[in-house]
Design a protein around this nucleic acid. Structure first.
Lengths: 94, 94
DNA sequence: ACGATATGCAAGCGGTGACTTGCATGTCAA
DNA sequence: TTGACATGCAAGTCACCGCTTGCATATCGT
């Protein structure tokens, strides 16, 4: 398993997670286009490498169908950050 | 304000946060000794530089008294991670 | 089958970050 | 005041990371 902390350290990777949160099941090309539309200059290869890191960290699930890949977000690995230092929304529930 | 994500990307900095969570108000020397005791090989200067990064990110509060500095943990900047991707312990409450 | 599309793989490059080294500053005790 | 202690500052080194480049692979439409 990859390092979740390292995975979210990069701004481009965080933008990818943002994009996947807004629209699930995107294709690599779709993702690239949208990122470029949001001002990011990342090439397809760069995004692909970022996805590999995110997948290693478990933050992203990649499902392959034919010549496409469909990418989905999985935020559950972020849970360990909360678990480690004990913060979170619940604290403000009362 | 510094980047919280970048701040927690480094294993040594996470160990510092762990140590401060277990024991608040430590001195730089104290912190170094404990980290070395836990198997980290960081020098004093290295730890000092890490603290600067953590302070920039708001994860640590440094209070200076005489020739000592006292370091305290502040986990509130981590909240933005939850706010951004909306996960957390509450989801599994039901 | 053939061309076009969508993605994978690998080597190389530049910049950034973590660490060390050496010295400077400041504070306490005697 | 002087020496020991606790920390700050700055330059230099080295490895890693993100990115590009170029080519390879695989799938769909016609």
């Amino acid at each position: 398993m990859g390092d979740v902390y390292k995975a979210i350290a990069d701004p481009t990777r965080r933008a990818i997670l943002d994009e996947l949160r807004d629209r699930a099941g995107q294709t690599l090309f779709e993702l690239c286009k949208r990122l470029i539309g949001k001002g990011f200059t990342s090439s397809r290869q760069a995004v692909s490498q970022h996805l590999a890191v995110l997948e290693e960290a478990g933050l992203v699930v990649i499902r392959r169908e034919g010549r496409y890949i469909f990418i989905d977000l999985d935020t559950s690995p972020l849970q360990q950050i909360y678990d480690r230092w004990g913060i979170g929304p619940c604290a403000s529930d009362t």
